[in-house]
């Protein structure tokens, strides 16, 4: 059933994102083309085209955020919820399907933005020397970490996913908590959002400052042999971040699931 939910969620959201991605890539290509054609002449057409491109780019990230909220709120907790919650599917499957597709579009928007930059800087990329320089810089950065270089790439990727998932589940849990209120559900959701955010920050402060004072102290003490210590500290911070956000995400998931399963009250 999860697979089917994913299929419909992808369909429902893809019809929004695909045209935006296409529009952005076309705007980037047009900007590049105008820039090549009007080289040495007026810069106005290129300027206008670039503005359009930037507007679409910003719009894309706004839409990624808006669609994430709207799919959860409108599809599950408004009139469409009458259909979704009478399908023979467990509430957790609804949450997981919406979460996974939302993560996918977050990644998709990043990839699309990256591709548009590739289009805009096409001649610089074609100039291979520059690219080789860039790769060399990245490679050099990773060699600092010695044998753990590839681990760093994994850590950055996982931390990115963990914070994205955390952000999405924070929104879901806020909307779900707002749903517990009989009236003023939107206001209650905003209140829940502020509360959950504050909770995350306080917890982060408690977990980082108190037990990690000694780690930091140790780091300061051994600053002389700093390179090895810095690498260890980097890994430590990365895994701490991944673990922290995964744990909080699990908490927010459980809150959301409990409310959708045991406390649902569609208007």
């Amino acid at each position: 059933m999860l697979g089917k939910l994913l299929k419909y969620e992808l369909k429902a959201t893809g019809r929004t994102f695909m045209p935006i991605y296409a529009a952005m890539l076309i705007a980037a290509a047009v900007t590049k083309l105008i820039s090549a054609l009007t080289a040495g002449g007026s810069e106005v057409p290129e300027f206008i085209s670039a503005i359009v491109y930037i507007m679409i780019l910003m719009g894309m990230f706004v839409m990624t955020f808006v669609v994430m909220i709207q799919r959860f709120h409108k599809n599950l907790l408004s009139d469409e919820g009458y259909l979704m919650f009478t399908l023979p599917v467990e509430p957790w499957q609804h949450i997981v399907s919406k979460l996974l597709i939302s993560v996918l579009w977050n990644l998709g928007s990043l990839v699309a933005a990256f591709l548009s930059i590739v289009i805009l800087t096409f001649d610089e990329i074609a100039n291979r020397a520059l690219m080789l320089d860039l790769f060399a810089v990245i490679a050099e950065f990773l060699t600092i970490f010695g044998p753990t270089g590839s681990l760093v790439v994994l850590e950055i990727f996982l931390a990115g996913i963990a914070t994205t998932v955390f952000g999405i589940l924070l929104i879901y849990a806020s909307i779900a908590l707002g749903h517990l209120s009989n009236r003023h559900r939107t206001m209650a959701s905003l209140g829940a959002f502020l509360g959950l955010t504050a909770f995350a920050q306080i917890l982060f402060a408690c977990l980082t400052l108190i037990p990690n004072v000694r780690v930091l102290q140790h780091y300061m003490d051994t600053l002389q042999e700093s390179l090895q210590t810095s690498i260890a500290l980097f890994h430590y911070v990365m895994w701490f971040t991944i673990g922290f956000f995964t744990l909080l995400s699990a908490g927010y998931f459980l809150i959301t699931n409990h409310i959708l399963k045991k406390r649902l009250n569609l208007e």
Partner: peptide, 20 residues
């Protein structure tokens, strides 16, 4: 729950169809 949803066919008093 999921078990009853398999055997109950429900027509709500409102429109639950999406528009796309």
């Amino acid at each position: 729950g999921t078990g009853t949803k398999k055997i109950v066919s429900y027509l709500p008093e409102r429109n639950y169809l999406n528009d796309w």
